[in-house]
Design a protein around this nucleic acid. Structure first.
Length: 507
RNA sequence: GUCUUGUUAGCUCAGCUGGUAGAGCACGUCACUUUUAAUGAUGUGGCCGAUGGUUCGAAUCCAUCACAGGACACCA
């Protein structure tokens, strides 16, 4: 039974008792006329008044009771709304006859949502408070709140019952407010640049635009499988073919892979595509974007992150191959030779999958020796063509692509490139990916003939970029687990029974 | 996937080398009209994550499982 806990039973009884007294424990006629924050701001002058009170003012505030202190014929309670917390003084003789003893003391408690009218005053201890003259229960909480001092600290409970986490931990609300700001600012930044926000399908016939395992779902009427999208890239590029010159989409992607501190099965990214531009232009706009964010979020450009300090005035730019030797300390004569790289990796006791080509091995070297050292924002440019199936080749060196990834605090934040718009080259790259798939790489990119068809009509030279919003928010809020920046992170079901029931429903 | 650490009251946590389950908060009762995690008194509250095993006896030891945290691997 869901309500068999004795504390819940006790509170249900209190609600029943209130009903029998003619009090609706779930009243709907709220008369709130100010928020707590406004109340505190508007009445800050009470400190200057000699009597420390103004009985002619009247305000009605609402909120959840967080603390409850009864002292005989008067009580102090602390209520909290979204804007802040306020102390309320509740005295027996200022409320209707019998209310204080029979309703307030017996049947109202921490966790309940109440509405209180009264006038402002300052207590002997110097706290601006509300002197209650009306008191009304809006919502009875039948589950007790967690411990008032330690609150709720168990990470599992915090993720599974995020609402409780939000009730108890004000700083968690702050994190998600920042997240919301980041998304809003991102949208405004690109709109101000003339980008058009678009929505492309979440269910794809072919999971393309990235190398990842997709979730599969089924369309009953059409009797076909669909894949939850792993990236919106190929659809956004179709829009460039269609003549839109600057588009962006902020939305979820789904990847059927492991979960850890930086991976959730569904995550949010912005992808934007910009015709008649190159990846060099994207480096410029990315720097602008970060300045814009830091400016509007009032963040210091020397941003603390864990025990690191990231200097957002210090954007670096370095080609991948060069970074291997200058940052990764891989000998310069090793990085262009497949056999030497293999020997080097072996000497460092690093095992890699057999059969990797030069570009893939260079990628391995980067992951092993460079990535974690990139603390200040660093654009790693000119990725090998073998690991960039959708990026345009450099006109100067066909082995590399016009691509960068942005790394901050040792983590990939963005991926961008001048888009491959040669349909014949793109077909060849897909065919290469199909070979990789045949030889066991189950995350190789799928062949998408419809996309090739679109490219064949001509896509203007275009640069495109994706930014992982979750990881960006982690960075800006000094959080170290993606679950702390997702309101409802993915969790396994608590009981195996739930799994079995789900299976039965499907069958 | 591997290793590792957890799981005890609604919450935060104790519980030693195995011997009848503890505290604080919350809740009930009593006192208290300016408190700040209010205070004082008193009481209720547990399938010790699940299942097996060892033992006269298991919250405690062992095994398996579930969930979670951390690390590593995979996923660029």
């Amino acid at each position: 039974m869901i309500f068999d806990n004795k504390f819940i039973q006790q509170r249900i009884e209190k609600a029943e008792l209130l009903k029998s007294m003619g009090i609706n424990p779930y009243a709907n006629d709220s008369k709130r006329n100010t928020t707590i924050k406004k109340y505190i701001n508007v009445n800050s002058d009470i400190f200057e008044i000699e009597t420390k009170r103004d009985e002619h003012r009247h305000y009605v505030v609402s909120g959840r009771i967080k603390l409850f202190r009864i002292m005989g014929k008067a009580s102090f309670i602390q209520i909290e709304d979204e804007s802040g917390t306020l102390q309320v003084y509740v005295a027996r003789d200022h409320l209707p006859e019998g209310f204080y003893n029979d309703v307030f003391k017996k049947n109202i408690e921490a966790g309940d949502i109440v509405e209180i009218g009264g006038y402002p005053f300052v207590t002997g201890q110097g706290e601006l408070s509300l002197h209650a003259s009306t008191f009304k229960l809006l919502t009875k909480a039948i589950s007790p709140l967690p411990e008032k001092f330690h609150g709720i600290t168990d990470k599992e409970t915090r993720y599974r019952k995020r609402y409780l986490d939000l009730i108890m931990n004000a700083d968690v609300r702050k994190t998600f407010r920042i997240r919301s700001n980041v998304i809003s600012l991102t949208r405004r930044f690109f709109e101000d640049k003339g980008f058009l926000e678009v929505e492309t399908p979440m269910m794809h016939p072919i999971a393309g635009g990235a190398n990842a395992k997709p979730f599969v779902t089924h369309h009953n009427a059409l009797k076909i499988d669909r894949y939850l999208r792993i990236a919106p890239e190929l659809y956004l590029k179709r829009l460039i073919v269609g003549g839109f010159e600057a588009v962006f989409e902020i939305n979820r992607n789904f990847r059927n892979e492991g979960m850890d501190a930086t991976h959730n099965p569904e995550f949010t990214s912005i992808e934007f595509y910009w015709a008649y531009k190159t990846y060099k232009d994207l480096i410029i706009i990315t720097k602008e974007y970060f300045h814009y964010l830091f400016d509007h979020l009032n963040l210091p450009t020397l941003l603390p992150y864990g025990d690191m300090e990231i200097n957002f005035e210090n954007f670096q730019e370095i080609p991948l191959i060069e970074s291997l030797s200058t940052i990764g300390d891989v000998p310069a004569d090793v990085v262009h030779d497949k056999e030497k790289i293999l020997a080097f990796l072996k000497s460092k006791n690093i095992t890699v999958k057999p059969g990797l080509n030069l570009g893939q091995l260079q990628g391995e070297l980067f992951d092993e020796f460079v990535e974690e050292k990139l603390i200040d924002p660093t654009f790693i440019t000119e990725y090998p063509v073998e690991i960039s199936p959708l990026a345009r080749r450099s006109d100067i060196n066909p082995d590399i692509t016009e691509r960068f990834e942005l790394f901050i605090a040792g983590r990939e934040i963005a991926n961008a490139f001048s888009e491959l718009n040669d349909p014949v080259d793109q077909l060849g790259r897909f065919e290469g990916q199909m070979q990789a798939k045949d030889s066991g790489d189950d995350e190789a990119h799928e062949m998408d003939e419809d996309f090739i068809d679109a490219l064949s009509y001509g896509m203007a030279p275009t640069a495109g970029q994706g930014i992982g919003i979750d990881r960006l928010v982690m960075l800006l809020t000094n959080e170290h687990s993606i679950r702390d920046v997702l309101l409802f992170p993915a969790m396994k079901p608590l009981h195996k029974d739930e799994l079995q029931e789900d299976e039965e429903e499907l069958n």
